[in-house]
Computed example of a mutant assay.
Amino acid sequence: MNEQHNTLINELVNFLNGKGAHVSFAEAVEGLSAELRGKTPDNMPYSIWQLVEHIRIAQWDMLEFSRDAGHQSPNWPDEYWPEEAEPASDDAWNQSLSQIENDLNEFISLLKNADNIYEPFAHGSGQNLLREALQIGDHTAYHTGEILAIRRMLGAWK
């Protein structure tokens, strides 16, 4: 691979890991007390738990779409958003966070090992690995901002 390609991959990895001009997902959920995970402030449609689960489901879907031509995405929007406002347990919370981290690492591995991030997938409608990387990063950053806004409303952010 050439130097420009390596530079792009490194920048995408930094973007996906939330390194840059804003708070990362991991930082946004770090230290959040269990009693606040399911709180939905006035005039907000979701709790932090629902946002975390939505990030997990959407990122998993984009990862699987990127590596498996036979992948079937969940039905939009119902299967991308949990109905429950709070996690069933600390284990459910921790499992969700763990899957987000693991799936992100899997996607980064795909990205680093791809021969051509611009080549459209044989399945889909023109998507490629670069597009999926940008979509994962953008989607996670957007909802991370919402998590921070909710934490501020709940008095649980600096």
Rank of each mutant, 00 (worst) to 15 (best):
F25V: 02
P77I: 14
A69H: 03
E132W: 12
R67S: 07
K39Y: 03
A114M: 07
S98F: 10
W93K: 00
D90T: 11
N94Q: 11
H54C: 02
L110I: 08
S73A: 10
I55Y: 10
K39M: 04
H5Y: 13
K19F: 09
P82T: 01
L8W: 01
P82D: 09
L129F: 07
D103C: 09
S125A: 13
H139I: 12
Q95S: 15
E11C: 03
I48Y: 05
A92R: 01
S125T: 14
A92M: 05
E11M: 14
P77C: 12
P120F: 07
H54E: 02
Q4F: 13
G145I: 10
H5M: 06
S89H: 04
G155K: 12
Q95D: 15
I117R: 04
L154S: 04
Q72W: 09
H54F: 04
D90R: 15
A28V: 02
F25N: 02
N6S: 13
T140F: 09
F121G: 02
I9M: 15
Q99S: 09
E64S: 14
A149N: 12
A58E: 03
R67H: 06
L8P: 08
V13S: 05
L8A: 04
T144Y: 05
E35P: 04
A88P: 06
A92N: 01
S96H: 14
R131W: 13
E79S: 02
S96K: 15
A149G: 09
H5N: 13
L130K: 10
E84N: 06
I57A: 05
A21E: 15
I147E: 00
A85R: 12
A149Y: 10
V23A: 08
S109T: 12
S96P: 08
E146V: 15
F65T: 02
S24F: 07
L134W: 07
Q72E: 06
Q4G: 03
E106N: 08
L12P: 12
R152G: 01
P82L: 08
P120D: 00
Y142K: 07
R67L: 04
D90P: 06
V13W: 01
I150R: 03
S109H: 14
Q50R: 11
M62A: 01
T144W: 05
A149E: 05
Q135A: 09
A88V: 07
Q72L: 00
L32Y: 07
I48F: 05
I150C: 08
E146I: 14
E106K: 11
E53M: 12
P120W: 07
P87N: 08
F65C: 07
Q59I: 06
N10R: 14
Q4M: 00
E79W: 10
G31V: 00
F65G: 00
H139P: 05
E64I: 12
N128S: 09
R131Q: 12
H71T: 06
F65L: 06
S89Y: 12
A114T: 14
N6V: 09
Q4C: 08
E119L: 12
R67V: 02
N10L: 09
S96C: 14
N102V: 14
H143F: 13
F121N: 00
E84V: 09
N43V: 15
T144P: 01
I147R: 11
A34S: 08
H139N: 05
F15W: 06
G18H: 12
Y142P: 00
F15C: 00
L36I: 02
M44R: 15
L130A: 00
I117S: 01
N6E: 11
E101N: 08
D42C: 11
Q135G: 03
N2R: 14
N94Y: 10
